[in-house]
Design a protein around this nucleic acid. Structure first.
Length: 420
RNA sequence: GGAGGCGUGGCUGAGCGGUCGAAAGCGCUGGUCUUGAAAACCAGUAGGCCUUUACGGGCCUCAGAGGUUCGAAUCCUCUCGCCUCCGCCA
């Protein structure tokens, strides 16, 4: 976060903390900032003195040199003392600043949890079955499409093995979403999923999401979403204005510990430790309207995918309490799950203004020469196996077979999944 | 995993204890010239922080973090990254 903005308008950030239900002491931050700048000024004054003395030393006679050097030794002692104080303050300041959340946009509803999210759109006909519909697990087991028991045997709790047409279906759906987004100008990317800590801090996953993330080495982690490596891809770079926007569609695995979700969705494919996804990323100019425009456009893209698959869904405007630290506004797409008689989240579309780009140091040079932090956005393309849940349930037939959505048929060369 | 080499501005690349935030070239921007473009010529061209109404002033950064020194791009230590060779290998 830009400390200057917090200085200018602390109330806005305090309010943001309240709305997002994140407890950060802004007053303490500002106090640390004040102390920090005071010490910094002291340090710089001493440094200026030393620099001056060093210039004099070059031309000085031997006697004078001795004098200056002994004087500088004294100054050095003072310098070390202040430096120590400064470092301590700076460290505390930085760790606090890292936790300040982005205030939510004005059109974000207030609320504490996802129950307070506001439905803004519904699409598709909720299917009316003229038979007793089954849940996806029953359907998949009957058709030998999934093996949860052996999944757990191999990989532990919340692990699974897809089989037969489910494998093809997953590949097809990923490829379909990839193709659709490429047609819209997104550059396909297959990034690393093992990422350094800075990438997770930079995207805002850390510090709050640390327990949610698998650590594989001292400074290497398994990314929980394709967004992380894709955003870190351009860290520390300066674009030319005409190089923006950057549009990427990433495809990769994603890994989540689901540490805080004991008891939730313990069975099945809804909440799992590893999954595949395509993800849309936009890096655009530092302009609120530009961000908003892309936010809506990314939503449209995902809606298009859902509509092509003919899965009934709704869109919710997520409430402030449901937003992550860096998110300014988020839409979730939720797909209809007949067996649960409700919609469940499949996509997450957010804009973050300059939250991530500031942390990752992604900038661009305007035509005027001024350098600014870019804006960033992301949205799911498709996430599997979660999407299979509603797909399979909505497409089930009386005999337990599953129709394959028309747009996927060319990828699988099949119209229906039947018992072998 | 073993051995060696190397990390300097947008890029190439010089510098190897003080006059170096850094030569030179390329690139880029502006100008002159031109009907226009190119060429040529001239000028400008790293980022960040503190301070200031402003003009300006100061500080930091030569992969990163420490250290030696009055003084570090230059010397030392560690970390990270890249390259080459060997080994292993989807």
């Amino acid at each position: 976060m830009d400390i200057k903005l917090i200085r200018q308008n602390p109330d806005k950030f305090k309010e943001g903390c309240q709305k997002k239900n994140i407890n950060i002491d802004i007053d303490k931050l500002l106090e640390l900032d004040k102390k920090r700048r005071e010490k910094l000024r002291n340090l710089e004054e001493i440094r200026a003195k030393k620099n001056l003395a060093n210039k004099q030393i070059r031309k000085a006679s031997v006697d004078e040199k001795e004098k200056i050097i002994s004087k500088m030794r004294e100054v050095d002692k003072k310098f070390e003392l202040i430096k120590e104080e400064f470092n301590k303050i700076e460290k505390e300041f930085n760790s606090l600043l890292l936790k300040v959340p982005m205030p939510p946009a004005p059109d974000v509803p207030e609320g504490k949890t996802d129950k307070d999210n506001i439905e803004i759109k519904k699409w598709g006909q909720i299917p009316k079955f003229d038979f007793q519909p089954k849940d996806y697990l029953t359907l998949m087991k009957n058709l030998d499409l999934v093996d949860l028991e052996r999944g757990a045997k191999i990989g532990g709790f919340r692990q699974y093995v897809l089989k037969n047409e489910a494998v093809l279906l997953e590949q097809a759906i990923l490829k379909f979403s990839l193709d659709l987004l490429i047609k819209k100008g997104f550059i396909p990317m297959r990034p690393t999923v093992i990422v350094r800590g800075y990438a997770l801090v930079g995207t805002g996953m850390f510090p709050f999401g640390r327990e949610e993330t698998y650590q594989v080495d001292k400074d290497l982690f398994l990314s929980g979403t394709t967004e992380v490596p894709l955003m870190a891809y351009h860290s520390n770079e300066i674009f030319k204005e005409n190089e923006l926007p950057k549009l990427y569609v990433g495809i990769s695995s994603a890994f989540r510990k689901e540490a805080g979700s004991y008891g939730k969705d313990t069975k099945g494919l809804y909440r799992v430790h590893e999954f595949l996804q395509t993800e849309q990323i936009v890096i655009c100019k530092n302009d609120l309207n530009e961000s908003i425009k892309w936010h809506e456009r990314l939503l449209k893209n995902s809606e298009e995918i859902m509509q092509a698959l003919k899965i009934p869904y709704r869109v919710v405007n997520c409430c402030a309490g449901d937003l992550a630290q860096g998110q300014v506004k988020r839409y979730d797409i939720e797909a209809w799950v007949p067996s649960e008689n409700r919609y469940r989240e499949t996509h997450s579309d957010s804009y973050l203004l300059d939250f991530q780009t500031r942390r990752l140091n992604i900038r661009y040079r305007e035509k005027s020469g001024e350098i600014k932090f870019a804006h960033s956005l992301n949205n799911t393309g498709i996430a599997s196996p979660r999407i299979l849940i509603s797909l399979i349930e909505n497409y089930q037939q009386k005999d337990g077979s599953i129709l394959i959505p028309k747009v996927l048929q060319k990828y699988i060369d099949k119209k229906i999944i039947r018992k072998r």
